[in-house]
Design a protein around this nucleic acid. Sequence first.
DNA 1: CAATTGTTAAACCAGATGGTTGACAATAGT
DNA 2: ACTATTGTCAACCATCTGGTTTAACAATTG
Lengths: 112, 112
Amino acid sequence: MVEYRLDTTFRALADPTRRGMLANLALGDKSIGELGEPFAMSFAGAAKHVKVLEQAGLVERRKAGRKQICSLKAEPLKEADSWLRQWETFWSARLDRLQELVEQHSKEEPNG
Amino acid sequence: MVEYRLDTTFRALADPTRRGMLANLALGDKSIGELGEPFAMSFAGAAKHVKVLEQAGLVERRKAGRKQICSLKAEPLKEADSWLRQWETFWSARLDRLQELVEQHSKEEPNG
DNA sequence: CAATTGTTAAACCAGATGGTTGACAATAGT
DNA sequence: ACTATTGTCAACCATCTGGTTTAACAATTG
């Protein structure tokens, strides 16, 4: 369903600069210049990061005069979270024994 | 706290082969050969993916005779999920108006 | 039309990724 | 000891990344 999008979403999130930009956008819309400002980086460099976020569907741009205002689009984050929650049982301590049971079933070689 | 680990975790998840391997591991422990089998890929290629997962702390290996059995470690997934849930309010429809309010506060230029 | 501001695009670089092949090591079975 | 199985490692390749600089384009202001 959204499998193909997980690639770009997770990739976009794999960079601290981009996560920082998202955090910044959470406080309100920002221009590309404003987004890049905290990161001691060239404008073009910041613009590349924004483009990655945009291609992942995490930010949307709209023109406002000569600026382009970026706003957060959380939908892909929701999808990524949905995917991650599939694994909830595996980090839930109460179900550690379930995992052990699964192991018992697939285990073929005895080990000491 | 775990910020540095988010980099490697999200990156590891950004590849469909590796997500597939994780899904496979959820069914029980597997050797590297078994993990690579479904992907029509050289053994060495699969081993590289496993290494990425291992460095992200998502799989753990233990020797069992001449095989090395990989098992799922969900802790980093939990951390990634915790990070994502910070954004829950932004994809929750009920709080769309909150986002609008934030926008109002940071907005400086009127747009038509 | 010119100056300023905001953004895009292109060329370039070092390093990482995803993949291959081939040589090698270690274990299990005969 | 030999062979088959399982895995490691290094070399190699094409492509992507994250970053730079520089130049060009677009829109607003004057």
